[in-house]
Design a binder for these strands. Structure first.
Length: 951
RNA sequence: GCGGGGGUUGCCAAGUGGUUAAAGGCGCAGGGCUUAGGACCCUGUCACGAAGGUGUUCGCGGGUUCGACUCCCGCCUCCCGCACCA
């Protein structure tokens, strides 16, 4: 016996991690077994692994270990992600000793100051965190094949990415275009979420910029409701605002100064011509470019020069502000603007029919909310109300010509496209809320990035292939399938190249770096190669032909060998390895990657590989919070993997994180919970040790009832745990394999069971091995052959399911509970307990009732008739109706369970146990022949429920 | 706003039409282990109850059903994603 007297995580875990590594236990090669290729998105190297990573990776490791024990040849590799901008940014901040970063990395990530200050280049950061992450993963005992480790900045990986993008280009999936981004004019860079000081919720909205004409000049109006162009009665300008005349492309525009400034960031050529005051323009007329109508320009205070173009088109029938501003002018003297006409003569144009509103929704909304004028804050509320109701329920009226009858919610994109085609409108981007301020304090604008490379994810044919792939995949949990489908639908073209950061250059346009999500899509294939690269394979020449042969089976090994200088047999072997291991059988990931990485993963696979190599399954899991608080890498709280393992041990960390939540629920990491988990694992170890040291166990002794019961429960637990793990439900698996089985064992021991303990333990240790591999390995060394990590997963054998034994134990347990309840309620001190098991006639009636019951109904009359026909039953005709009625009432839940057991014999046999448990002598009679029955209690006996008399 | 997921007994959390007052864990209480124990074992933990019972519960309000935590409708409420960023 080499087991430590008390459980020591440190000793056990270090020992087995060393043994696994030294003996290459998790380094698979192709063989005749079924293969299982499991991957997890590699972590990004801008910090230490934290509890969130721990969860995703531990689920993956548990599945890998489970599948391995199920007889699969399992490949579980890992790599590291370093391309993109954050690491470059981080190195600059560290080099500058940025106080915030300093604090985060010393306090939250636990990096000593001297070490941190040395991380002043991207390369050093990558090196440091790569090492740190690998140590962390080893310290928690992941069964990773480390021969395949790589980093996305490795030269060979770059060749692989170049090859991939070459294909995508050839397939016309990479195209040039422009797109709007949040932009800081000071930094001259796109602004990312974490770089925003204020306005982080602002989104980029696309307005229609409608070009009203005034002679050869254009007065553009920005609107989110282009359909209302049919109902424009006038324009609004703010007389106090400064407007400018500017050349925009080939036209002359009049817009607010602020709008002109914004236009310079778009993809238009803008040059300032002159200033012009709002007052100068008011009173003039412009032409509605769609309807040709002449409308007057009027003054309004609500017009914000910083919103849109600073010119607003007025649709008083449907826009409360427009109605209010117009009404505000009714009795004003506008002669200073040269306006003498009676504005009451302006006729409102109604163009949207919506339920609950009449002709003029804006007027109704203003009345309903009692909005005073255009400066009343309630005007905003009225606007939102009308907009929402018209958007969701509105339909365009006859005066919108060919758009008549179309729902408002469907019209915007169509109409905008039409207007753009006719040269009447353009798109103008605006933040949904202002201001948006960059971390440097500068106000952000929307910049049109030109000549940008895009992955054309909007391509309908490409989408269709992704959807097809999805339809054939297993999505775990299944509820997430619709989420994936929606996101495919929603996905637009994605900019796939950047100017800054680490990464691979676009092979055909070297100014650009491939964006880092775009280089992380089919790298699972690269794991096959990485083993050879790490072993020193020559990589100075890796032309597309090389990858074509390995991954697409195009070409010949000998040609590739001579092209690359790599030995032909190596080329052949890599090729064969790939053919063996691909496709990916399962990718497990945090739910944060659904709408980006996992989607791209599918997109690129279906673009590049034939259908037979498309991924088979994706499993998604939730996050980890700390004591109810959301974790944050940059703000805290943060728990790193190494910290968790150092404080609690690998197995406890694994057990806690796998056992506390399922699927997309979050795990809440709570110290008191972790402490009690440690206690539970110690208990497991102690019990196992006790069993292993118990020399009185006779394994070959004939099976007693309780032995049979124990084996029956064991095989139920095995079946439950197996099914749960097949569905990647670690929590449910642990409930069965750990907690419930433990309770079963307690009952078994309490009932005097012993001889099957070792047999149960053997299964138990194997059931627990995917979850707590170190302690299981330690225990297995005392009881089994080889590594438990490679042992056979226990098989659930239906032959061990023993209904009779389980029923007997259930009867015993319930009888005990009933007696105890009576004792408790009566507060009696029992001197003697008498049990009467059911009379035979009640069993007979129950049997008849079971046969007669249909669809939850039981005909009482029919039952009585049949019962009385039986002489044995008829002998008790006084008592039969009462019992029959009871059965009829419970017709829907009648069960045959109680009939499968000789209750009298069972209770007689357990008399002693009952007496001991209840602290009083127990007598057992059948109600058919009651011995002592002072109060006639025996008449209450029913199948499954003995009558009880306590003296 | 759009899309997705939730609201269960002190806490965490199972549970998709009847075997559910509702698994399991934690916490708490009582008892045992007869030196102690934050170790271990047993029992209890919605309320009431001197015979195994009864009553009231699963966000709120309706509905379907012999029967609903479970199905349908409406409402309230919480969390997540909405991008060019890993």
């Amino acid at each position: 016996m080499n087991l430590l007297e008390s459980y020591s995580a440190k000793e056990i875990e270090a020992k087995w991690q060393k043994i696994w590594e030294e003996n290459a236990v998790f380094q698979p090669e192709p063989d005749s077994r079924r293969k299982f290729f499991l991957t997890i998105p590699y972590p990004y190297l801008n910090g230490n692994l934290h509890a969130g990573h721990t969860r995703t990776f531990t689920i993956g490791d548990a599945v890998a270990r489970f599948k391995r024990m199920r007889g699969y040849n399992v490949l579980f590799p890992m790599a590291f992600h370093a391309t993109g901008t954050p690491i470059v940014g981080l190195s600059e901040l560290i080099a500058n000793k940025d106080p915030l970063i300093w604090n985060v990395y010393t306090k939250l990530h636990g990096i000593p100051e001297e070490e941190l200050s040395s991380l002043n280049t991207p390369e050093k950061i990558v090196h440091y965190f790569r090492r740190s992450a690998k140590l962390a993963m080893q310290s928690i005992g992941y069964s990773i094949d480390w021969r395949r480790e790589f980093t996305t900045t490795d030269p060979a990986y770059s060749k692989f990415i170049e090859w991939q993008y070459g294909i995508l280009r050839r397939l016309n999936y990479v195209v040039k275009g422009s797109h709007p981004v949040r932009w800081c004019p000071h930094d001259k860079n796109p602004v990312e979420d974490h770089d925003i000081l204020k306005g982080e919720d602002a989104t980029i909205m696309d307005f229609a910029l409608i070009k009203f004409k005034m002679g050869d000049k254009v007065l553009p109006c920005a609107t989110l409701r282009p359909e209302t162009l049919f109902g424009v009665t006038n324009l609004w300008l703010n007389p106090t605002v400064n407007y400018v005349v500017a050349r925009v492309n080939d036209e002359t525009w009049i817009v607010s100064r602020e709008a002109c400034e914004k236009l310079t960031f778009t993809d238009r050529n803008v040059s300032f011509v002159s200033e012009i005051s709002g007052a100068e323009l008011i009173g003039k007329t412009v032409t509605n470019p769609l309807t040709g109508t002449e409308v007057l320009i009027l003054p309004a205070d609500f017009v914000d020069p910083d919103n849109g173009s600073g010119i607003v088109m007025s649709v008083p029938a449907h826009a409360p502000y427009d109605f209010l501003a117009l009404r505000d002018l009714y009795d004003k003297d506008l002669s200073e603007f040269g306006i003498t006409a009676d504005l009451r003569a302006i006729k409102f144009i109604s163009l949207i029919e919506s339920p609950g509103y009449g002709e003029l929704p804006a007027v109704e909304a203003v009345d309903e909310l009692k909005v005073k004028d255009q400066n009343d804050p309630k005007a905003e509320e009225a606007t939102k109300m009308v907009y929402r109701r018209e958007f969701h329920g509105g339909v365009l009226k006859a005066n919108t010509g060919r758009y008549a009858g179309i729902a408002v919610s469907k019209i915007k994109d169509v109409l905008l496209a039409d207007l753009i085609e006719q040269g009447i409108a353009e798109i103008f981007y605006e933040f949904s809320e202002t201001p948006v301020i960059c971390r440097c304090g500068t106000r952000c604008v929307i910049m049109m990035v030109r000549d940008q490379w895009f992955l054309e994810y909007s391509d309908p044919e490409w989408k269709a292939r992704v959807l097809k792939c999805l339809s054939k995949m297993e999505i775990i949990p299944e509820e997430f399938r619709v989420e994936f489908e929606n996101k495919v639908d929603w996905l637009k073209d994605k900019a796939c190249a950047r100017r800054k950061g680490l990464g691979t250059h676009l092979p055909w346009d070297k100014e650009w770096l491939i964006e880092s999500l775009g280089d992380s899509t089919i790298y699972m294939a690269y794991y096959i190669l990485a083993k050879y690269v790490n072993a020193g394979m020559k990589i100075d020449r890796l032309p597309p032909e090389f990858f074509e042969y390995i991954f697409m089976n195009n070409g010949r090994a000998e040609d590739v060998a001579s092209l690359t200088g790599i030995p032909q047999e190596t080329v052949q072997q890599i090729h064969d390895d790939f053919a063996y291991w691909y496709p990916v059988d399962l990718r497990t990931s945090g739910k944060d990657l659904v709408a980006n990485h996992l989607l791209f993963f599918l997109y690129h696979h279906v673009a590049i590989f034939p259908e037979s190599l498309w991924p088979k399954a994706i499993a998604v899991n939730g996050f980890v919070s700390l004591e109810g608080q959301k974790m944050s890498k940059s703000k805290g709280p943060l728990l790193t993997l190494r910290q968790a393992v150092a404080e609690n041990g690998a197995d406890v960390t694994r057990l806690y994180i796998l056992g506390n939540a399922e699927y997309t629920q979050d795990v809440d990491w709570r110290n008191d919970g972790v402490v009690s988990t440690r206690g539970q694992l110690e208990r497991f170890y102690n019990l196992a040790r006790e069993i292993l040291t118990d020399s009185s166990i006779e394994e070959s002794a004939p099976l007693s009832l309780i032995d049979r019961w124990m084996l029956s429960r064991l095989h139920r637990r095995i079946a439950e745990a197996t099914e749960a793990m097949e569905n990647i439900q670690t929590r449910r698996a642990l409930q069965s394999a750990f907690y419930l089985l433990y309770n079963d064992l307690r009952w078994y021991q309490r009932r005097g069971g012993k001889n099957q303990l070792r047999r149960v333990l053997s299964a138990w240790v194997r059931l627990m091995a995917p979850f707590t591999p170190h302690v299981c390995e330690e225990l297995w060394a005392e009881m089994g052959e080889g590594y438990v990590s490679l042992a056979e997963w226990p098989a659930a054998d239906a032959a061990f399911i023993d209904e009779e034994a389980e029923r007997a134990e259930k009867l015993l347990e319930e009888t005990l509970k009933d007696v105890e309840e009576i004792v408790k309620v009566t507060k009696a001190q029992p001197k003697k307990i008498i049990l009467y098991t059911t009379p035979a006639w009640k069993r007979a009636v129950l049997e008849m009732a079971l046969a007669l019951a249909k669809g939850g109904k039981l005909d009482m009359g029919a039952l009585m008739k049949e019962a009385m026909a039986s002489p044995a039953v008829a002998a008790h005709k006084k008592d039969v109706p009462k019992y029959a009625q009871k059965l009829a009432k419970a017709a829907h839940s009648l069960s045959a369970e109680a009939l499968g057991l000789d209750e009298f014999q069972t209770l007689c046999r357990e008399k002693e146990y009952l007496a001991k448990a209840l602290g009083a002598p127990v007598e057992v009679y059948s109600a058919d022949e009651p011995g002592a029955d002072p109060k006639g209690k025996s008449s209450q006996a029913e199948p499954g429920r003995p009558a009880i008399w306590i003296e």
